[in-house]
Design a protein around this nucleic acid. Sequence first.
DNA 1: AAGCATTAAATGTGGGTGCATAAAATGTTC
DNA 2: GAACATTTTATGCACCCACATTTAATGCTT
Lengths: 139, 139
Amino acid sequence: MTPTRDVDLASRWRELLARYHTLSCALDRALQEGHGIGMSDFEALDLLIDADHEKLRMQDLAAGMYLSQSALSRTIARLESRGLVTRAMCSDDRRAVFVAPTDSGRALHTQARPTHRAVLADHLDRPEGPPRPDGTQCA
Amino acid sequence: MTPTRDVDLASRWRELLARYHTLSCALDRALQEGHGIGMSDFEALDLLIDADHEKLRMQDLAAGMYLSQSALSRTIARLESRGLVTRAMCSDDRRAVFVAPTDSGRALHTQARPTHRAVLADHLDRPEGPPRPDGTQCA
DNA sequence: AAGCATTAAATGTGGGTGCATAAAATGTTC
DNA sequence: GAACATTTTATGCACCCACATTTAATGCTT
């Protein structure tokens, strides 16, 4: 109702936008350059390995990710083509697909996770992030 | 250092991810369906109209947006092709391009802004957003 | 059991984004 | 002032994403 409130909304939105953009870009860059894996790919692998049985149906994986069903399908396809996860039939429901990390996937995750956490720590602990002179415009 | 802190980092990141994803998706959807304009397109128009002189060089517009230079260039191209902004030469520096909203652009902005603000208000005032049964999976 | 709706995952398609590069104009150095 | 570096915008390209549709399997109703 009040215009002051409205300004607050816009600036809060812009701050959220800034935080997400900066962090996701830094994450993607660090993971890509350091381990040749994208952000969503890592998130999928991370969820998969944190899962209790380390074996999830696509649908259950999707529940933990902020990706469309088709995007997840392609993400898993990417990971599989690089030998980081395997797809297996599910005998209970033959429509479903089990996804599980391979040894190679676990190894990459072990390497990439510190990078991931380091970027999070670097960005989440500062309220504003002005001094970050990367080479790119991915501010 | 402490593992507890590490868990905090990951969950804070996931919350940021959730907030951004939910809100940006809702914004994009509301603006697209209600006014046929994308989120980034609206942001550009919004910045342009809030500018003091209502005439900005691409570079200055870019400073206020979280888009790469190329993405902004295409965003302005989209807006121009729909008659919402105009590009004009800058006599001071003939490399630069002035962008200004047209009457049509101002009209659309006037219509779209309440939608934009309403979505922001709807999403930014709630800590968690579980009950939002849209038709799509754009959760 | 047959027919129809529903669910799980994959694929076709179009759109937006960032990086690298190109093209044009300006600034700098000698 | 000529050559080279820098800046500003546009474009080629590849990637990722969401939506719509397809294919296959399951569930439900009669």
